[in-house]
């Protein structure tokens, strides 16, 4: 099943390569990966998604924790959590009919058209990965020119938080 793993990492050069290298070295796959400094700029927050069964997920978390640069690791999928991803899609939109259809579709998905030319619309969408997939399916016929996704970010619901 899909796992969302969140890591609090020392914001040091080479730290990210240790995480990525671990996945390559041990034969785990990475579906998405996002990383950025937190409010404390000595720390990076990294979220990655991977497909794995329970046993492998446990190994992944333990192996990640073993890396010297990691401070905390949590498998968000174990509890209730919020998952978000941002996507930008450039779509062919030359004639009025298509533009109208696209606009209503964007509205249904609560997205925004963030750039317009005579022949294109660029749409911004946030949500969980399934929603973004569904939007892509909905507009595929119209003509997608380019898709850019950030990968999943996640946070636990409720009082739980990941902090030093």
């Amino acid at each position: 099943m899909k796992r969302i793993i969140s890591i609090l990492l020392e914001n040091e050069s080479g730290a990210l390569s240790r995480v990525v290298g671990l996945f390559a070295q041990r034969g785990y796959n990475i579906d998405t990966l996002t990383v950025a400094p937190t409010d404390d700029d000595t720390l990076s927050r990294l979220t990655l998604t991977t497909q794995s069964d329970d046993q492998m997920a446990e190994q992944i978390v333990k192996q990640l924790h073993k890396l010297i640069d990691t401070i905390k690791v949590v498998d968000l999928t174990v509890g209730s959590h919020i998952e978000r991803e941002l996507m930008l899609v450039k779509i062919k939109a030359s004639d009025a009919e298509v533009r109208a259809e696209l606009k209503s579709c964007v509205e249904i998905f609560r997205g925004h058209v963030v750039d317009v030319t005579a022949s294109t619309y660029t749409v911004q969408l946030t949500g969980d990965s399934d929603k973004l997939d569904a939007f892509i399916d909905a507009v595929r016929e119209i003509g997608i020119m380019e898709v850019v996704r950030t990968g999943v970010s996640g946070i636990a619901r409720g009082d739980k938080f990941l902090r030093v």
Binding site: S13, G14, S17, R18, G21, Q25, I68
Partner: peptide
């Protein structure tokens, strides 16, 4: 060296 040795060290520093 940090890159080449990465999979076979407990940790490394530059």
């Amino acid at each position: 060296m940090v890159g080449v040795s990465r999979p076979i060290v407990k940790h490394s520093f530059l």
